[in-house]
Amino acid sequence: MKARIHVSLKPGVLDPQGKAILGALESMGVDGVSDARQGKLIELDLADTDPDAARARVDDMCRRLLANTVIETYDIDLSE
């Protein structure tokens, strides 16, 4: 089983890297982009076969290490 974990900054937390990306897009002449936020994607190969157990384990990993819940949120996608 695979887990894809998308870690992103909480809404309201200023994202200097996202701002720089937005500025770069604007300087390239790209329009119609009102905001940019940068996060990270973490992919795990899991030994689990039960999705519920896998989700609970990955959630625990996120809270303990993979995300800093003071400033970040995370979404977990599981696939076979």
Binding site: V13, L14, P16, Q17, A20, N68, V70, I71
Partner: peptide
């Protein structure tokens, strides 16, 4: 110390990157 929770808050990338 912030990551352990012994101090509150977090240290992010510098404003000027």
């Amino acid at each position: 110390l912030c990551e352990t929770g012994l101090l509150p808050g977090a240290l992010m990338r510098n404003r000027g990157l």
